[in-house]
Computed example of a mutant assay.
Amino acid sequence: MIPDIDAVSRIVREVSDAEIMPRFRNLAEGEIKEKGPGDLVTVADEAAEKALTRRLSDLLPGSLVVGEEAYAGDQGVLDRLSGDQPVWIIDPVDGTHNFAGGKPIFGTLLALAVKGQTVAGWIHDPNSGRMATAVRGEGAWMAGRRLTVLPPAPPSEMTGAMPTKFCDPERRELLESRRPRLGPTYNLFCAAHEYLKLALGEGHFSMYHRTMPWDHAAGVLVHGEAGGYSAKLDGSPYAPTDRGGGILMAPDRASWLALRDVLLAEEGP
């Protein structure tokens, strides 16, 4: 069911080289659009997703595709994740705002799901050439090296990504008030790079409020296979079929619980 990992990696690299990188810092007028308020898409996103859809479908006959750009045209594509056929989940250019602004912090996220469970994932940084891969139960790898998350630490020493853009105002206010209780936090505006930092041992945690599968299916698997612990904010396991509930990543379950308490626990008067 899972095709050759290296064959998929080659496809991701080749599509990046052909459709994404030639357009980086080279977008013409009219090649950046808004799908919605503040939600950008470029010709690179669209061309890369089409190329990946074609090549991955050919590589695994009978498979389906859920792509971020296809979803923009038909939200019903998400229903494919609930069926029996294998499904490729594609974010062709994660960090489109950075890409469109000429900032080299963007990547491609790709996952393969079977019956609602992520079974393989790829995270590619086209600028550095780094590629993290994972197969469920077989670890996370980059260039022949097994990846490992940072060891647990108390929340006051934990560093990580804590974007609050997509929170409701009340939660945003709560999280901002709790930020001083943590170590240094950052927002790269690119989940691909934030997941890479976790898997490479360069950050302890990430917290997200939107759970669209192209943003998180690959990253949650890579993080877990690198030894990390993740769950939705209510403590239930994440699955690519989820439509909400937020996600929190940490080195292990104990540090996850401590971090969630610091960030979200109600305090008495």
Rank of each mutant, 00 (worst) to 15 (best):
I123K: 00
S206A: 14
R171W: 15
P213Y: 00
R210H: 15
A120Y: 01
P152Q: 07
E170A: 11
A132K: 01
N187M: 12
V220N: 04
W122D: 04
M207Q: 10
T185I: 09
G137F: 07
G183H: 01
V222W: 00
T164E: 13
P126N: 03
W122T: 04
W141H: 05
E225K: 02
A161F: 06
H209F: 15
P169T: 12
G144S: 08
P152F: 04
P154G: 08
M162E: 10
T164V: 12
W122P: 06
H193L: 12
M162P: 03
P126F: 05
I123P: 01
A161T: 03
W122N: 06
L196I: 08
E138I: 01
A199H: 01
W141D: 06
G160D: 06
W214V: 05
E138D: 14
N127W: 12
F166V: 11
M142E: 11
L182M: 13
M142S: 12
V135Q: 07
G139E: 01
D215S: 13
E170Y: 07
M158H: 06
R178V: 06
E194A: 06
R210V: 13
L196R: 07
K197D: 14
G219A: 05
G137T: 01
M142H: 10
P151M: 11
M212E: 15
